[in-house]
Every structure is written in structure tokens, then in C-alpha cells.
Amino acid sequence: MDARDALNQSTATAIRVAVGMIKRRTREVVDGQLTTPEWSTLAQIARSGPCTVAGLAREQQITPQAMGSTVASLEKHGLVTRSADPDDRRRSLLTVSDTGAAALRSGRDALSDRMAAALGESFTDAEVATLAAAAPLLERLAQHF
């Protein structure tokens, strides 16, 4: 392993550990009535627009049956709605309800507020600038693996 490979490996490990810690803290903030898979599914529907249970299952790499259970819970909470697919009446399309959109905004706002407070209290302006510059790079990294 050459020096660049060693640096890539240690950087990947450090990022994995940090992201894991952030994920755990995130769960503390957004957890309430919904499980992490439910939050993830609700956010995925919001990002992708109307979609099917099978499409969501493929996207999240789980079985359609498991996704069906998650979606049923979201429907029970009134966070998603189901309607007939105009192109294929045998399929249903899922969309985020107004209540679901409000829950997502509330959860995201709570996360952003908590993170912004931590940045303001514990980080220098230069460190915040470094994190701001790293954010798009982390997003690009997530898209490439």
C-alpha cells in the first residue's frame, strides 16, 4: 500500500466513524413516534416524488414486504397518502401528506438548530468554514460509493 492509499484508508475510516456518530446523535433528535427506517422512507418519498412501494424497496435495498410494513405505519400516522397510478391502475403511488411534510420540516429544523448551536458554541469561525467547504465533498463522496 502506497502513501496515497494509506491516506485514503485512514480518511475513509475517520469519515465513517464521524458519520456514524452524527447518525446516532441524529436519531436522538428525530426519534419519537417514528423509527429510523420510517424517517428514512418518508424523506425518500419527499425527495423522489410519487413512487411505488417496490421502487422504494429497491432504492433502500430491502424487500418489498419489509417496505410495505414501513409504508403501512407511515399511512397509519397520516404521513403518506396512496393513490392509483394513472399509467397502471394496478399500482399505487405514494406521496407525502401535508402532515408528513410538516413532520419532515420539524425534524430537519430540530436537527439543523441543534447542529447550528453546536457549531456556534464549540467551533471557531475557521473550523466552521472548513466544515462548510467539506460538506459538498462529503455529499459527492456519498454519491460515488
Results as ranks from 00 to 15, higher is better:
R114H: 09
T70V: 13
M1Q: 12
L137I: 06
A43I: 00
S73N: 05
E139T: 05
T13W: 13
A142Q: 10
G20E: 10
A118R: 00
A103V: 02
M67W: 05
L119K: 01
I15S: 10
L141W: 06
S83V: 05
L7I: 15
L137E: 10
G107A: 14
L138E: 07
P86T: 02
T63Y: 03
A43V: 02
G32V: 11
D31A: 14
A132E: 15
L7S: 11
A135C: 02
S83G: 08
T13E: 09
L74H: 05
R16N: 07
T36M: 13
V17Q: 12
M67E: 14
D2K: 12
L137T: 03
S73C: 04
M115K: 03
S69H: 06
F123M: 02
E75D: 06
R89T: 12
Q143S: 15
E121L: 04
S40V: 10
D87I: 07
A66Q: 04
V53W: 03
R25N: 11
A72M: 02
S48M: 14
R4W: 13
V29A: 01
A132Y: 09
D2M: 05
A43M: 02
V96Q: 07
E139P: 00
R47I: 03
T81G: 05
L42Q: 07
V29I: 15
A6W: 07
E127M: 12
A103R: 12
A135N: 03
G55Q: 14
S73F: 00
R140D: 15
E59I: 02
A102T: 12
S92C: 00
A57Y: 04
L138M: 09
A103W: 06
Q44G: 01
L141T: 13
R82V: 00
T124E: 06
I45Q: 09
E28N: 11
A135R: 13
V19W: 00
A6C: 01
V96N: 04
